[in-house]
Amino acid sequence: MIHFHRVSKHYDNQTALRDVTFSIEKGEMVFVTGPSGSGKTTLLRLIYLAEKPDEGNISIAGWEIDKLKESSIPLLRRNIGFVFQDFRLLNNRSVFENVALALRIRGVDEKGLKTRALDSLKVVNLRHKADSYPFALSGGEQQRVAIARAIVAEPAVILADEPTGNVDPDTSAGIIRTFKDINARGATILVATHNRGLFCNTGRRVLRLDSGNLVGEETG
């Protein structure tokens, strides 16, 4: 589903990723870990095409990134659900509208959109907050809205960048449980985190990055 082959990325003489090669198969849930500045976010940004690699090849859900036309980028991104570190929720739209946005972009009709958005909010236990606005929610709730938005269109791949960065341990555990449930339904999930507690004893594959190098792989 996600294949990196000898991928490197540099920013002004600084190497963010160096010669990284790995594969994530369909239906896997994988963690990427490492200290701050190790290249986790860059790796995710390369997957959702916010950046282009300087060297190497990337393939996502059968799309060869280096052969991708600019007009196809939105189509690729529709196969990916994102949970951003800073949530990227729109404060002038209700929780429902934030989640529904991912469906509107995909051209889903109003009726299907309402059912699916509310179902998605139910998965993250925020159905009752549908009419609230993001600024009125706690950090953990905002994180769950972001997850609801990422899963609502049932994308093939879900990327999460520090999804528990702003929440307490109980909420963290809840978020990881949600990811496992979604993964159990067939979605491929890649979670970037520096929090070792998140993947310990999960039995999931963990990729370790350090200073832009993929330094090891283990089972959590």
Binding site: R77, I80, F82, R88, L90, L101, A102, I105, R149
Partner: peptide, 13 residues
């Protein structure tokens, strides 16, 4: 700008 960036990342044409 931020809102538009989010649209783009969510796959908006």
């Amino acid at each position: 700008k931020e809102e538009i960036e989010t649209y783009k990342l969510l796959g908006a044409k």
